[in-house]
Write a protein that binds this DNA or RNA. Structure first.
Lengths: 129, 129
DNA sequence: CCTGAACGCGTACATTTGTACTCCGGTCAA
DNA sequence: TTGACCGGAGTACAAATGTACGCGTTCAGG
C-alpha cells in the first residue's frame, strides 16, 4: 500500500463525493454537491486532478470526457485521517475523543443503543479468546 | 466568543503542548515535546506566535523572554476541530466515526467497559427525562 | 576582560492549499 | 453555417503552512 500524501480539507470533501459516486465525471461530482457551501466547477476539477496525482483516484479518458474513479479505499483514508487527528489533538489516545463524541455531540437514543450493542459484542469476543 | 481561524496540524500539536504547560516560554514548550517527531525550536516559536495572532494564546514579555498562555479553552477547540472533521469526512454524521473508532482503533478492555458505563449512564439520564 | 555556547527574536522562503479565470472543441438552434 | 453555449482542460495566483537561518544578547569559563 503506497503511502499517499495526506488529504487536505477541500480534497477530502471531494474524495467523499467521489466515493459515493465512483466512477464519475467532474460535472457529476460537481452536481452531486449539497447546495450549501458549493464550490466552483473548476475547483472541483482541480481537486480531482490533485486526488489523482496523490494516488487517491485514477482516471481514464472516455472520448473527450475524463472519468474519475476512487482508488484508495474509503476506510483506509478514514483510518489515516483519524489516526492523524487523534495523535495531533490527543497525543495518540483514543478515549478522549470517544468521550468527547459521546458527551458533546448529540447522539440519539437509537445511536446510543447501537453503540452499546457494538461494545457488548466486542466485549464478548474479547472474553472468549 | 470570537470565531478564530482554524488551527493547522502543526499549530495543533503546539497548542496541545501549551494547554498542558500554560503558561510557558518557547523553550519550555520545545523541551516538553516527546522525543519522537521533534520540531525545531524556531518552528515551535513560529507556531506559538501564530497561535497568538489567531487568538488562541496570549503572551507577555517578562524581561527578555516572552511567556505564552493558552487563551482558548481546549474543549472548545477540540469541539470545533472534531465538528470540522466529521462534517468533511462523514458529511456530518457522528456514528460512522464512532464505529470506526471502536472497531478499527485498538481499544483496551478497560476502555471498553468505561465506554459501556458512560453509555449506560447517558441512557439512564435520557429515560428519566 | 574576552569568547564561545546557549537563548530568544524576527524574518525568510519553498510548498501546499483554496479558488478561479481563460481558452478550446463540439453542439444545436436560428 | 454560424454564432451562442456547454463541458472540460490547463494555467494562474494569492494565502496559508511547514520549517529554519542569521542576528543581537547573556552568561559562565578561561
Amino acid at each position: 500500500m503506497a503511502k499517499r500524501p495526506a488529504l487536505s480539507k477541500g480534497e477530502m470533501v471531494v474524495a467523499r463525493l467521489l466515493w459515493d459516486n465512483t466512477p464519475a465525471t467532474v460535472r457529476q461530482i460537481h452536481t452531486a454537491q449539497p447546495p450549501s457551501q458549493e464550490m466552483d466547477f473548476s475547483t472541483v476539477q482541480t481537486y480531482l486532478r490533485r486526488l489523482e496525482t496523490k494516488g487517491y483516484a485514477s482516471s481514464v479518458l472516455q472520448g473527450k470526457t475524463r472519468i474519475y474513479s476512487a482508488k484508495a479505499k474509503a476506510a483506509a483514508v478514514v483510518k489515516a485521517t483519524v489516526d492523524e487527528l487523534v495523535s495531533r489533538l490527543f497525543g495518540g489516545s483514543t478515549m478522549p475523543l470517544m468521550r468527547h463524541l459521546i458527551e458533546e455531540r448529540s447522539v440519539s437514543s437509537d445511536e446510543l443503543s447501537e453503540l452499546r450493542q457494538l461494545i457488548e459484542r466486542l466485549e464478548k469476543e474479547r472474553s472468549s479468546e
